[in-house]
Design a protein around this nucleic acid. Sequence first.
DNA 1: GATGGGGCTTCCCACGATGGGAAGGTCAAG
DNA 2: CTTGACCTTCCCATCGTGGGAAGCCCCATC
Lengths: 132, 132
Amino acid sequence: MNIGAAAARSGVSAKMIRYYESVGLIGAASRSQAGYRIYGDADIHRLRFIRRARDLGFSVEKITALLGLWSDKGRSSASVKSLALAHIDEIRRQIGELQSVLATLEDLAQHCHGDNRPDCPILDDLSHGRPQ
Amino acid sequence: MNIGAAAARSGVSAKMIRYYESVGLIGAASRSQAGYRIYGDADIHRLRFIRRARDLGFSVEKITALLGLWSDKGRSSASVKSLALAHIDEIRRQIGELQSVLATLEDLAQHCHGDNRPDCPILDDLSHGRPQ
DNA sequence: GATGGGGCTTCCCACGATGGGAAGGTCAAG
DNA sequence: CTTGACCTTCCCATCGTGGGAAGCCCCATC
C-alpha cells in the first residue's frame, strides 16, 4: 500500500505521515524499488492510534510515550493511566482558563449596551484594565 | 522612554513590541539620533490595551480591529460588542470541544484499573477507536 | 580619556502541527 | 507512447513567542 492509500485508510494525511516519520513517531517505512513508501496493516493500525490520540489532544511527544506503552506487552495499566490523568489535568486547566476569560468577556458584553452611542465598557476595560 | 522601559511599564516584552510594530499593530516608533525607538505615555497606553486583549485571547488580527474602534471616536458600541460576542462564541466552542475530549478521557481513565496488569481500556480505545 | 557593562539595533532560528506548492521521477490505463 | 494521477524531496507559511549573535551606543567608573 502506498502512502496515499495509507492516508485514506488511516485518516492521517500523507503530509503528516511523512512528518511523523521525520520526528520518529513511526519508523521509516520500507520502500519500493522506485523509492515509494510501502505500508501494511500494522502501520495503518499504528497511524489510527496516532490519529485518535491527536484527536484527544495528546501531543506528539505524549503519543511517543503512549506508543511505547502500547507496544510494550509487559507494561502496567498504571503507567498508561498516569499519562491519561496528567492529560486530563492539563485539559481541566485549559478549560478553567477559558472559562475565566469567558466570564470576563460575558460580563463586559452584558454591560455594553451595544447601540449607536460610543460609550463602551469593553474598550474601557481593555484600555484601563478595570471596568470604568 | 526606550523600548526596555516601555516593555517594563506595559507588560509587553521588547521582542513583542518590535513584532507588533512589524505586523502593523502599532505604528513605527519615532527614533533617537542613534536609532533607538522612543515611546511616550500614549504608546504605553496602547501597549497595555494590546496586552490586556491578548490575555483575553484576542488574536492580533482581532486586536487590530479593536484598536481601530478604540481610536475611532465616532464608532458605535454595537460594533465593539459584536466583536466581543464573536469571540465569546469562539471561546464557548473551544470549551465545548475540550469538555467533550475531557469526558471521553475521564470515562476511559475510570475504566482503567491502573494496577500492574497490562489490560488497559485507554490503549484499547486508542487502538480500535471504540472501547473494547 | 579609556574601559566595561548593559541596552539597543537587525537578522536568523526555533517551537508544534499542519498545509501549500514546485520540480522532478513513476506507474497504470488508454 | 501519452496522459494524468501519484510519489519523492525540499522550501515556505502559519501564529505568537523566545533565544541568541554581531555590532553599535550610552553612561558611569577609574
